[in-house]
Nucleic acid binder design. Structure first.
Length: 316
DNA sequence: AAGACGAAAGTGGTTGA
DNA sequence: TCAACAACTTTCGTCTT
């Protein structure tokens, strides 16, 4: 699971890897979900460092020739993966007489119909998917995976009798979480205009039918995004992560809502690091109430023995 | 006046008989 | 299917800065 990449010697000099944060000039970064986060100021540098160009490299024309495939790279975000099929009608067909000929004709018609209706379905679904993915700022990998799962769902007949949008929203919810870039039901609901409970229903249905394991979201995965929204420093983020980790070790997290945990950890971290945000602001951007933040905050402070440090920090 | 605090009652979802 | 349950919310009065 750890970095297998970066094994290959980078012969090309300079210019690679020398990243500088445009906000604070720092050169220290950490990764979170698909995001690169500056340790200095907490600025989110790249929404997603998923490579969008071809996945191979070629240094000579000859090599390029060899590595290139026929046609475009396969992608699930185009409903037919860029390859379409059609049963031919000209040429050959005329040589097939009688019964066979009728058979071919029916096959062609059936195939055309089947693909037409799937086309329409997928066309609509994928444009909705595209809209939501960009609205929610999700990386391309989520886009691809949802498209793949959606096509699978269509093939399994899961979508029949259900709203396409709901299935798409549910898949995004699942995949985004799985890839460490979770979005809350609230956010999905906002972006899609679908009731939370509807998305939830579709989500459970689809997870069951497709046999997707559904782990609860991890509070850490929310930190980078919410900290970014609140313009909090990298120190605060790091501190918040540490708090969450300690809380987990102390078994304070089981059964607790991950967003509430993230919110409280973030707020507690700002107190300790002397950055000012109100509970109200944190509550608003995270989507929990101040009361929940206070409850978690108190548990963390008490159980992790942070009380004196808090007092200390408050006197500065 | 704004923020933090916490009590009390209400809500929706999960779990186990 | 129902009731019990924990987490979370809503609401609101009080204290602190």
């Amino acid at each position: 699971m750890t970095d297998q990449r970066k094994e290959e010697p980078e012969e090309e000099e300079g210019e690679a890897e020398r990243l500088e944060c445009p906000e604070c000039g720092g050169t220290n970064f950490s990764e979170s979900g698909g995001d690169l986060v500056c340790n200095g100021c907490g600025m989110v540098l790249e929404e997603s460092q998923i490579q969008e160009s071809a996945e191979w490299r070629a240094f000579t024309e000859e090599e390029r020739e060899k590595k290139a495939r026929a046609g475009k790279p396969l992608t699930y975000t185009q409903h037919d993966m860029g390859v379409s099929t059609e049963i031919g009608k000209g040429g050959e067909l005329f040589k097939v007489a009688g019964r066979k000929r009728g058979q071919y004709y029916r096959m062609r018609k059936w195939h055309r119909r089947a693909t037409k209706s799937k086309d329409r379905n997928l066309g609509f679904a994928l444009s909705e998917l595209k809209r939501l993915v960009s609205h929610l700022n999700l990386p391309k990998s989520v886009h691809e995976e949802v498209a793949r799962l959606y096509e699978k769902s269509v093939d399994k007949g899961l979508v029949k009798g259900r709203r396409i949008e709901n299935i798409i929203a549910a898949l995004i919810y699942i995949v985004a979480r799985e890839q460490g870039n979770p979005r809350t039901l609230d956010e999905l609901s906002d972006a899609s205009g679908i009731e939370k409970r509807e998305i939830g229903k579709a989500y459970r249905y689809v997870a069951r039918e497709l046999d997707l394991r559904i782990l609860p979201a991890r509070p850490e995965d929310y930190i980078a995004k919410f900290a970014g929204d609140l313009k909090l420093s990298g120190e605060v983020q790091a501190r918040a992560r540490k708090i969450i980790e300690q809380a987990r070790e102390a078994d304070l997290l089981s059964g607790k809502g991950p967003t509430g945990v993230a919110a409280a950890a973030l707020y507690l971290a700002t107190v300790l690091e002397g950055e000012k945000v109100t509970q109200r602001e944190v509550a608003e951007t995270v989507g929990v109430t101040e009361v929940t933040i206070r409850n978690r905050y108190k548990e963390f402070a008490d159980e992790l023995g942070l009380s004196e440090e808090i007092e200390e920090a408050e006197n500065n």
